[in-house]
């Protein structure tokens, strides 16, 4: 069969909502796009452990410490499923991780912002996980089977995290003056970066058209961003806090909230590596990997010795 014919069959399957599975024929670019996207997603889970991990040792109560530990651990688990999903496309976990360390692969820019106070942990749960869920719910219906299935599991845990984050802020919002200030300050700092998580505007997004056609993506960046704003603008009222946007206002005609313009300069700056923590995050990941090398080598050496011994026996 010619490539053109294979491509035609492939697109017919996509259009008929039949999932693409690892052994199926797929266009090279489809494979590459999925590798890029899934690995980026896996890296985001792993790098995302760092800003939240920053508060584990200082969590303000034993209950909060346990919740945070469990949450960060869930993220490690998500990273694992996603690296496995990526492996079904023919790239090993090690190669994928090397791409992260060399800077070839990206991760979500949101994790290049620092967690300065305890309230940031709640704000990340509510806003960052909230924004991630918008994207991930869409991805449960993505066309590549292993990715879609990983997303179903991940979404369940993420929505739990989002509720925990919101609940943690709710406690602050009902607390002392200082606690309320911590809460508002965290919202002020995380709101715009959270909106940036949906990526460039549709008119500027380079990967979007083909991804929509292949149903890797099913909603545009701007559509998802709008859904997020609509959701958060309501939830923030329950907290009695404000989103830091003077232009945020309900538009009766559109049945959506209007909101102000994102600082795209900042967005591109952080993407290019100039965010407050880009260097620290990557350094921390590289350090963990390099310092773990002797451990991984020892585990491999021991496994080989055991195999040799059981063969000899």
């Amino acid at each position: 069969m010619s490539v053109q014919e294979l491509e035609k069959i492939f697109q017919v399957k996509i259009d008929a909502e039949i999932k693409i599975e690892p052994k199926d024929w797929m266009p090279d670019a489809y494979r590459k796009t999925n590798i890029r996207q899934i690995s980026q997603h896996a890296h985001s889970e792993i790098v995302g452990m760092l800003p939240e991990g920053n508060w584990i040792s200082r969590a303000p109560s034993l209950k909060r410490k346990a919740i945070l530990l469990a949450k960060v651990q869930d993220e490690a688990g998500h990273g694992l499923y996603l690296y496995s999903a990526c492996e079904t496309l023919g790239i090993s976990r090690e190669e994928t991780i090397n791409d992260l360390h060399s800077g070839r692969a990206k991760y979500s820019s949101i994790f290049n912002y620092p967690t300065l106070t305890w309230a940031d942990i709640g704000a990340i749960g509510w806003l960052v996980d909230g924004a991630a869920i918008m994207n991930q719910v869409m991805l449960t219906r993505t066309s590549y089977g292993p990715y879609a299935r990983a997303m179903v599991r991940i979404c369940k845990e993420e929505s739990f995290h989002q509720r925990q984050g919101f609940e943690s802020l709710l406690v602050l919002s009902k607390g002392t003056k200082e606690q309320k200030e911590l809460c508002q300050d965290a919202i002020n700092r995380w709101w715009w970066p959270a909106l940036m998580m949906f990526g460039p505007k549709d008119t500027e997004s380079t990967n979007s058209d083909q991804s929509m056609k292949w149903k890797i993506k099913r909603k545009s960046n701007d559509e998802l961003r709008q859904n997020f704003v609509d959701m958060i603008a309501e939830q923030v009222k329950i907290l009695g806090m404000k989103l830091p946007d003077d232009k945020l206002i309900w538009n009766e005609e559109r049945r959506h909230y209007d909101f102000g313009e994102i600082d795209w300069n900042e967005f591109w700056n952080v993407v290019k590596g100039n965010g407050p923590c880009n260097k620290q995050r990557l350094d921390a990941r590289k350090k963990a990997w390099e310092e773990g090398e002797w451990v991984r080598e020892a585990a491999t050496a021991y496994a080989e010795k055991r195999r040799a011994r059981s063969k000899a026996a």
Binding site: G53, A66, A76, Y83, A284, K287
Partner: peptide, 26 residues
């Protein structure tokens, strides 16, 4: 043990040591 969370030598063991940490805190 919780200081390892996010810095373990390999992902599976990062999860394992965090689990132990969670048990102990419990």
């Amino acid at each position: 043990n919780s200081e390892w969370c996010g810095h373990g030598p390999v992902l599976e063991q990062d999860i394992a040591i965090t689990n132990i940490s969670l048990d102990l805190i419990g």
